[in-house]
């Protein structure tokens, strides 16, 4: 039997995904070095074609597309990661407590989860951002609030199945406290579905963030891919690269995350695929 890493890293789709994600991460981390100028600064005349003076040309106001792409990577990744981590943390807490204690607590928490799940998530996110006034924080909050319910349901289901296993009873008999059992015995055994769902959630978060920025609900002083697509949209016939460059960046990033997420799933649950 191969180990997890052997299964994970020999999967060609995972390797492709990781290469692109690595590239985007480097762009995001070293953005100030790779494009020292402010991405909102007007550096040249508008509509300069790519591969001329500027690698990716300039947009309708003469802003450097390369700087926008690099700083946009930073915004997308940061917002998506923080939002996902918050959603996973909150969802795990709710699902863990609901599944472990059961009964009345479970009923209350799960009805609350369903309440959030039944609201159309994108419209809900738009409303939240509009109420909270657009900023990086409000976008993160909005994405986290619409993303945690599925996590809570998955964790609850896993906890329900794990808590019936005998090692949990053994921990009770050893005298471990409820919180100790939940954190040290039960939750570590729910990790694999959580990692897979969490990684796919990052992709959704990037899409939601881009969509919000596209609609003009992005953070006003942060360059973002969605904002670039949105502002280049009216010039699609004359300057295709204004939309194509950030659009392809979103596409490849979301695709890569999905490939890696699927790869994680295959590597963590090998039997599902093999038998």
């Amino acid at each position: 039997m191969k180990t997890f890493w052997q299964r994970f890293l020999t999967n060609p789709r995972v390797v492709c995904g990781l290469i692109w994600l690595g590239l985007v991460t480097i762009l995001a981390i070293f953005a100030p070095l790779l494009a020292p100028s402010d991405p909102f600064a007007i550096v040249a005349e508008p509509f300069k074609t790519p591969f001329s003076e500027y690698v990716f040309g300039t947009d309708s106001l003469g802003r450097d597309m390369w700087a926008g792409l690099v700083h946009g990577a930073r915004t997308s990744l940061l917002i998506a990661l923080i939002a996902t981590v918050s959603a996973v943390a909150f969802g795990t807490m709710v699902g863990g407590i609901a599944g472990y204690y059961g009964g009345f607590i479970d009923d209350i928490l799960m009805r609350m989860t369903e309440f959030f799940q039944t609201i159309p998530s994108f419209i809900f996110a738009i409303v939240l951002v509009a109420i909270l006034t657009p900023s990086a924080t409000s976008i993160i909050i909005a994405i986290a609030i619409v993303s945690w319910p599925p996590i809570a349901r998955i964790v609850r289901g896993e906890v329900l199945s794990v808590k019936g296993r005998e090692f949990v009873q053994a921990a009770i008999i050893a005298g471990q406290s409820d919180s100790g059992i939940l954190l040290k015995q039960v939750l570590p055994n729910t990790l694999s579905p959580l990692i897979v769902t969490g990684s796919l959630l990052v992709a959704t978060a990037i899409l939601v963030e881009s969509a919000l920025s596209f609609l003009g609900l992005g953070a006003p002083n942060l360059m973002s891919w969605g904002f670039m697509v949105g502002s280049g949209r009216s010039f699609l016939r004359d300057a295709w690269w204004l939309v194509a460059i950030p659009g392809v960046a979103i596409l490849l990033t979301v695709l890569s995350i999905n490939l890696v997420g699927e790869g994680l799933n295959d590597a963590l649950n090998p039997r599902l695929r093999d038998l």
């Binding site: 090692f167 053994a170 008999i173 005298g175 040290k184």
Partner: peptide, 20 residues
């Protein structure tokens, strides 16, 4: 009283935490 009484379980595949 946990020191006084302990238990051995039926299913050896479910009684040990696979992550520990």
């Amino acid at each position: 009283y946990r020191n006084t009484v302990q238990m051995v379980f039926q299913d050896p595949f479910s009684s040990l935490n696979p992550r520990q």
